[in-house]
């Protein structure tokens, strides 16, 4: 058995199957949570009948429904680009799961450049969005795609710079290394505290930028349904349409996982053995952050395009640069 597991190719196949299952499941769970939480925040009951109780099977039923829908490609569209855009979005989503550590050993691959890899891979989905927006040959889609690109340009930088503070603290870019550094990081006394205690500014900037990267309210200008009729997904139907939502909810899961790993201690919780409790602790933290994102959706109004750009360039980038300087000074002096 252990012989079998030490073979690289067999292990890789097991991991591929596991992640191929985890991506849709995580999207389903987060999506259902969004339906139910949104409903309760608006004093509705939300989906109720599918699956017998609480409408837990609502999204599965939706998925089966999408299977039977006609795949319409507009006549004017750039057919090949239109076809492959959802694949690129899903490529980015799936590849992001490679570096999420669920426990010290339960990780697909602990890359040395884990943090860099996250930042690089997560921005690939924007190319997919831009492809979708351009190839649809639709005015709304084109505007949605261009807005998505502008948003990425503005919010990629705060995302990258906010992580530098964590890298300074940990002295490594490997995801497991960062969690281990937090497990032995003590500010007062003997209990290990996660980096959010000393990197609170970095955490706020990271979460804001992550919200913008995910195009969620208040940064949902690329898909603004009231003005752009869902922007870049206007022309998509059936399963191709579903892939964008699968990508969005699975990315919500993985971005929350990365924020939890970098700032909230990942799979580590004082007093619990990470080898056994690691996945449970991490998933609990992921759902806490995902809940915050859903909560924001029903709290903040959508920003205007110029406010969006100003907020990133005049506030988030200077603040995160200052955060790097302050963290560096503290690291060297103390």
């Amino acid at each position: 058995m252990s012989d079998l597991l030490s073979n690289f190719w067999i292990l890789l196949a097991i991991k591929l199957v596991a992640i191929a299952a985890l991506v849709p499941v995580s999207a389903l769970v987060i999506g259902t949570a969004e339906l139910k939480i949104s409903a309760h925040m608006q004093s509705r009951i939300g989906p109720y009948f599918a699956g017998g109780r609480f409408g837990w099977a609502q999204l599965i039923a939706d998925g089966i429904k999408f299977f039977q829908k006609e795949d319409i490609i507009p006549e004017d569209a750039d057919r090949q680009v239109f076809r492959w855009a959802p694949a690129l979005v899903l490529l980015s989503t799936v590849a992001l799961f490679v570096v999420i550590p669920f426990s010290p050993t339960l990780i697909v691959r602990d890359l040395d450049l884990g943090v860099f890899y996250v930042l690089a891979i997560s921005s690939i989905s924007t190319i997919g969005v831009l492809m979708a927006g351009w190839s649809s040959a639709n005015k709304y889609s084109l505007m949605g795609g261009l807005r998505a690109a502008g948003q990425l340009i503005a919010y990629e930088l705060p995302l990258v710079l906010a992580v530098v503070g964590v890298v300074i603290q940990a002295g490594t870019m490997s995801m497991v290394g960062i969690v281990e550094a937090q497990a032995s990081f003590e500010v007062f006394g003997t209990i290990a505290v996660p980096y959010v205690a000393v990197q609170f500014v970095g955490f706020l900037v990271f979460m804001t930028a992550a919200l913008a990267e995910l195009s969620r309210i208040p940064f949902d200008l690329p898909v603004a349904e009231s003005e752009l009729v869902m922007g870049f997904v206007t022309e998509y139907t059936g399963f191709r349409f579903l892939f964008f939502f699968l990508g969005e909810y699975a990315s919500m899961f993985s971005m929350s996982a990365i924020a939890a790993t970098l700032f909230l201690g990942g799979y580590h919780f004082p007093g619990l053995d990470p080898a056994i409790w690691g996945p449970v602790v991490l998933v609990a933290k992921i759902f806490f952050l995902a809940f915050l994102m859903i909560w924001f959706r029903w709290t903040f109004p959508r920003l205007r395009e110029d406010q969006l750009q100003t907020f990133a360039w005049k506030w988030l980038i200077p603040v995160s640069l200052a955060n790097i300087a302050v963290t560096g000074v503290f690291k060297v002096v103390f």
Binding site: I19, V23, A87, L90, V94, A95, Y117
Partner: peptide, 16 residues
Amino acid sequence: DYITVGSFAALGVVLV
């Protein structure tokens, strides 16, 4: 490392 990352990127496309 590269094979893992490459095969997971391919997995996204294969799923579609």
